[in-house]
């Protein structure tokens, strides 16, 4: 079961004119895996994710997400994935419950299913008492956690998290990663980008993108051995420096 690939990417390329934002990247992600997708700003992470979630067309190469082809079946991909972007993305002027109802609704969940699911996840988040509060009045950390629950609402096979913990305090980050682990344990594949190298250590495997290419891909432990350093931070710096 653990060896089943849910993402298969081969020589995926996205070019804007002569500039290759993503340059022939190849990798696989296994079911239930927490896959860290690292890279400096402008390395091409977001462009790569956009191709995988079906909102940007690749220039060349192959990619399959949950067994669906990114060229021909973007709609099927969208139904089977969850997505949380680096910018917080719930509606501030809607209440917690209204946000859940809305996002559950656009994924086609029945009203009954939404009620049940939202009750469960609100209890889990400890937010059931404030479900009628406007999201805009919540602290950022709560919003992020709520946003993650909303992304999981329709039980997607893969969740794409684009810098989910930006600007959040260490305790909330810790709680957030507990949620990620829990989702992964239940079989959801997690595809996460981050700037925090300590978070990279939490991942099962990480890839590091530099200037459009994947320069390293392995478990954090193996990468540290390979580069003969003590932390992922140093791995990252070494890679970035070599390129320069």
């Amino acid at each position: 079961m653990k060896n089943e690939n849910v993402i298969e990417v081969e020589n995926l390329t996205k070019a804007f004119g002569a500039f290759k934002a993503v340059n022939a990247i190849s990798f696989e992600v296994k079911k239930g895996e927490i896959f860290g997708f690292l890279g400096a700003n402008g390395a091409g992470k977001t462009t790569a994710i956009k191709m995988l979630i079906g909102i940007s067309h690749p220039t060349s190469g192959k990619a399959k997400v949950v067994d669906f082809d990114v060229y021909t079946q973007p709609e099927a991909i969208k139904r089977n994935i969850g997505y949380m972007s680096q910018r917080f993305a719930l509606y501030d002027d809607l209440t917690v419950q209204e946000n859940i109802n809305f996002f559950g609704g656009i994924y086609g969940l029945s009203r009954k299913a939404i009620r049940q699911k939202s009750k469960d996840s609100l209890v889990e988040l400890g937010m059931h008492e404030i479900s009628s509060k406007l999201v805009g009045s919540l602290p950022l950390g709560w919003k992020q956690k709520l946003s993650f629950s909303v992304a999981l609402l329709h039980e997607p096979k893969i969740v794409f998290l684009d810098e989910p913990t930006g600007g959040v305090d260490p305790i909330t980050r810790r709680q957030f990663w507990e949620m990620i682990y829990k989702a992964a344990d239940q079989g959801t594949t997690i595809f996460v980008t981050t700037h925090y190298m300590d978070e990279a250590e939490y991942c099962d495997r990480v890839s590091i993108m530099v200037e459009g290419k994947i320069e390293a891909l392995d478990t954090p432990k193996n990468l540290k051995q390979q580069f003969k350093v003590a932390s992922m931070n140093e791995v990252f710096l070494k890679l970035a420096r070599n390129i320069e």
Binding site: I55, Y83, S85
Partner: peptide
């Protein structure tokens, strides 16, 4: 601006 458009485009809504 809020980034919700991205979320909507990733959803099954056309």
């Amino acid at each position: 601006e809020l980034g919700t458009m991205e979320i909507l485009l990733v959803s099954p809504l056309k």
